[in-house]
Structure formats: structure tokens, C-alpha cells
Simulated assay, not measured.
Amino acid sequence: MNVSNRRIPYAELSPDVRAAIEARTGPALKTESASEGLNSEIAVRLVSQAGEYYVKGRRSDHRWAWTQRREAEVNPYVHGIAPALVARVEAGGWDLLIFEAVDGHHADYRPGSPDLPKVVDVLRRLGRLPCPPIELRHAEQRLERYVDRPEDRAHFTGDALLHTDWNNTNVLVAGDRALVVDWGWATKGAPWLDAGYWVLWLTAFGHEPASAEQWAAQVPAWAKAPAEGVDAFAVANARMWDEIGGLNPDPWTARMVDAARRWRDYRQA
């Protein structure tokens, strides 16, 4: 999910908020705002004598502030495939998460990229994790407005933990592994859905839909996906991105609208 927010520099936080953060990190020696992604109103890499941290968050009254709580609750259950959460700080009207910083790069989804097998690996590892006993949205509820028939929702039900936002900026490649960040939209649903979401992003990065599905096929859960369920999922995503794009989408959104339509058309051919 991509939302336009003004990115707030660390120095613009009030002294009491910075003090609450630095009570967990140690005094900041250097801070640098992240350039990628606009989901968080503040996203800062903070260096202190104790180490390096990534601080992200929203004002407590933001309509999606609940994603902060969701991400904090999910983090203990995704150890090894996501950066570790150091602390959640609620102070001065802000809801902030402090993570251990990771040195890496955003995954390259283009055809031929050496990052693709690493993304397959993290999808497999996620697929082996149990769904945590916390409140999660359900995939069939998130997609119900976009299906042809109410019964199509049954294809999306399940007990798997899903990330659902496989934007390449949410996948950090560090050495020989990939880590997944931004779990605020974590969802419970059919285990093959995350591979399906990845198909859409691969298509947006230059893969033909058939090639994108071949990469998804390396994730075991995809082999159990019913063809009619994948068809319904492709249709639902095309409708969702059409809705997001509206009549005059920006270039980033237009690319996603086009990718979703191409995948839908491939499934319907």
C-alpha cells in the first residue's frame, strides 16, 4: 500500500518525542530521512553510540495509525525474515517503531536479477511460519468488493500469515538473504496469495505474466492454488488498481494498473 505523506525530518519532532526515542537508542549522532516509500510520516535512519536504528511512524490520530500496532504485534512472529523491533514509542502525539537497522538494498525485481531467488526463499520461509494468535484482517474481506461473485471470496480464505504488499521497497536484500519490512497490512488468508501478489509486482517490473507465474511456482503454496482462485484474484487486483488509479493516475500507479490488467488478461485468455 502506498500513501502520499509529507516526510517529516527528525529535527522537526518535538524535543519530548526525540527524548522518548533516544531513551531507547541513545543520543542521536546522525539522522537521515529515508528516500523510498511514503507510507510513514517519519522514516529515519538514526545512528548513536549504541548502534544504528530505523525509526518509522505516524501521528497517533492518523487514520492508519492502527498499522503501527499491527506491525509491532507481528514482529515477534517473523523473526529471521524481518528486522527486529527494538521498541514501540508513543509520545507527543506520535506512534513510532524503532527497528534494528539493516544494511542492504531494495530487491531488484527485473528479469534476470540475482535477487529473485532470494525473494523466493523468503516467501518459502514465510510460508512455513504459523499464523500468530493476534488480530489480523482477513484476505476475503479485503478483496470482497472486487470479485465477480460472492462465492469467489472462498478462494482467499485460509490460516496463513500474509504480508500482501510485495512492493520491492518492502524487500531488503542483505548479503545472501532477503528481509521483509512494513508488516502493517499483514493479513490472514490462503497461503498462495503472497506469491500471487508477487506476480503482480514482477509483471510491473518487466516480466511477462507467464514468466512471473513461473517464479511464483517456485513457492510451494502456489502449486496448491486453484486455477479459478488465481483467476478471481487477478480480476480482483485489476479492479482494485483501477480504483486506486482513478481517471488520471500518476506514473507509479499507472504502471501498477497496467500490470494488473495484463495479468488479468493473461488469466482470461
Rank of each mutant, 00 (worst) to 15 (best):
N248L: 14
A259R: 03
A178M: 15
R153A: 10
W185P: 10
V199D: 05
A227C: 00
T203Y: 07
L162A: 06
E140P: 08
D194K: 11
E140C: 07
T164K: 03
D152F: 00
I244S: 02
A174R: 15
P191I: 04
E243L: 07
E208F: 07
P130K: 13
N248V: 13
D242P: 12
G196Q: 04
T203C: 13
G184T: 06
R137A: 06
P191W: 01
L172W: 12
P220N: 12
D159P: 00
P249Q: 08
L172C: 09
L129M: 09
V147L: 09
G189F: 03
E228W: 00
R177L: 10
K188N: 10
A223L: 14
Q141H: 10
Y197Q: 03
W166H: 14
G158H: 00
A223I: 08
A232W: 00
A154S: 04
G206R: 10
R128L: 13
D231P: 01
G127D: 03
E228P: 04
H163F: 07
G229Q: 05
L200Y: 04
R128A: 14
R149D: 15
K188S: 09
E213P: 06
G246F: 06
G229T: 02
V173S: 06
H155E: 09
K224S: 08
W166E: 09
S211H: 14
H138Q: 15
C131D: 12
V173P: 04
N237W: 06
L129K: 08
D250M: 14
K224E: 05
L202M: 03
K188A: 14
W263V: 06
N248H: 15
W252N: 13
Y197V: 01
T169I: 12
A210I: 12
D182Y: 01
A154N: 04
A195S: 15
R145E: 09
V180M: 10
K224N: 02
R149P: 10
R153L: 15
A160C: 15
N248T: 13
P249D: 06
L136A: 09
E213Y: 05
R142I: 11
E151P: 05
P220W: 01
W201E: 13
P251T: 02
F233C: 03
A238G: 05
R125Q: 13
L247E: 12
R264D: 09
V122C: 09
L247W: 05
T253H: 07
L193Q: 02
W263S: 00
E213H: 03
D258R: 15
E151F: 02
D176F: 02
T169V: 06
V173M: 04
L193I: 07
R239Y: 01
W201C: 05
L123W: 02
A223V: 04
V122M: 08
L172M: 14
V230I: 04
P220M: 10
D165H: 13
K224D: 06
T157A: 15
W263P: 02
R153C: 12
V120L: 08
G229R: 01
W215L: 13
H207E: 13
N237V: 03
P220A: 05
G206M: 09
A260S: 13
W263R: 01
H163V: 05
W222D: 15
R264K: 14
I244E: 00
L179S: 08
D182G: 01
G245P: 12
W198K: 04
R262K: 15
R149S: 11
R177N: 06
L247G: 12
N167L: 10
L200T: 01
H163M: 12
R142E: 12
R124F: 05
E135H: 11
V120H: 02
P226V: 00
Y146V: 02
P132L: 08
